Simulated assay, not measured.
Amino acid sequence: MSVEDVLLTADADGVRTLTLNRPKAYNALTVELKERLLDALREASATPEVRAVVLTGAGKAFCAGQDLKEHAELLTAGDPAPLGTVAKHYNPIIRAIVALPKPVIAAINGTAAGAGAGFAYACDLRLAASSAGFRMAFAGVGLGPDSGASWTLQRLVGYGRAEELMLLGRPVDAAEALRFGLVSEVVADEELPGRAHELAAQLAAGPTCAFAKVKEVLNKASSSTLDEALAAEDEAQSFLGATEDHREAVTAFVAKRKPEFHSR
Rank of each mutant, 00 (worst) to 15 (best):
residue 196 A to P: 02
residue 9 T to N: 06
residue 44 A to R: 05
residue 264 R to H: 15
residue 132 A to W: 04
residue 241 G to N: 10
residue 103 P to F: 12
residue 54 V to I: 13
residue 251 T to R: 15
residue 90 Y to V: 04
residue 66 Q to H: 03
residue 227 D to K: 15
residue 108 I to R: 05
residue 177 A to I: 00
residue 43 E to C: 10
residue 221 A to N: 13
residue 216 E to P: 06
residue 175 A to T: 06
residue 253 F to E: 01
residue 229 A to Y: 02
residue 33 L to E: 13
residue 103 P to C: 08
residue 252 A to M: 14
residue 151 W to R: 00
residue 123 C to N: 04
residue 52 A to C: 02
residue 201 A to I: 10
residue 211 F to V: 14
residue 75 L to E: 10
residue 157 V to Q: 01
residue 61 A to F: 11
residue 252 A to F: 12
residue 147 S to A: 14
residue 11 D to M: 09
residue 264 R to D: 09
residue 177 A to E: 01
residue 236 A to L: 07
residue 97 I to G: 02
residue 221 A to S: 15
residue 134 F to H: 10
residue 116 G to N: 12
residue 132 A to F: 03
residue 229 A to F: 01
residue 101 P to W: 15
residue 108 I to C: 07
residue 234 D to G: 08
residue 74 L to F: 14
residue 142 G to D: 12
residue 71 H to P: 00
residue 176 E to T: 03
residue 209 C to P: 00
residue 107 A to S: 02
residue 232 A to Q: 05
residue 151 W to L: 08
residue 103 P to W: 12
residue 102 K to Y: 08
residue 264 R to Q: 11
residue 262 H to G: 05
residue 72 A to Q: 13
residue 172 V to H: 12
residue 143 L to Q: 10
residue 259 P to Y: 06
residue 86 V to Q: 04
residue 106 A to I: 07
residue 120 A to D: 08
residue 196 A to W: 01
residue 46 A to G: 09
residue 172 V to N: 10
residue 233 E to Q: 13
residue 84 G to F: 15
residue 255 A to Y: 01
residue 107 A to Q: 00
residue 45 S to Q: 07
residue 153 L to A: 07
residue 21 N to T: 07
residue 43 E to M: 13
residue 231 A to M: 05
residue 86 V to L: 01
residue 149 A to N: 11
residue 204 A to Y: 10
residue 199 L to F: 03
residue 197 H to K: 01
residue 220 K to G: 08
residue 179 R to M: 03
residue 63 C to I: 09
residue 49 E to T: 09
residue 43 E to F: 06
residue 189 D to R: 04
residue 139 A to T: 04
residue 46 A to F: 10
residue 32 E to S: 07
residue 217 V to K: 10
residue 85 T to I: 15
residue 260 E to R: 13
residue 66 Q to S: 06
residue 72 A to H: 13
residue 258 K to C: 07
residue 72 A to D: 13
residue 250 V to Y: 12
residue 207 P to F: 05
residue 117 A to N: 00
residue 132 A to T: 02
residue 64 A to N: 14
residue 88 K to C: 02
residue 203 L to I: 05
residue 70 E to A: 10
residue 152 T to P: 01
residue 239 F to P: 08
residue 202 Q to F: 13
residue 224 S to W: 12
residue 195 R to W: 03
residue 45 S to T: 14
residue 45 S to C: 12
residue 14 G to H: 06
residue 98 V to P: 04
residue 66 Q to Y: 04
residue 193 P to K: 05
residue 257 R to G: 11
residue 107 A to F: 00
residue 42 R to N: 14
residue 179 R to L: 02
residue 59 G to H: 12
residue 230 L to C: 09
residue 143 L to T: 02
residue 247 R to L: 14
residue 214 V to Q: 15
residue 123 C to R: 04
residue 143 L to S: 09
residue 229 A to H: 02
residue 49 E to R: 08
residue 118 G to V: 11
residue 233 E to C: 14
residue 196 A to V: 02
residue 146 D to M: 05
residue 232 A to V: 11
residue 46 A to Q: 14
residue 75 L to A: 13
residue 79 D to R: 08
residue 68 L to H: 11
residue 250 V to M: 12
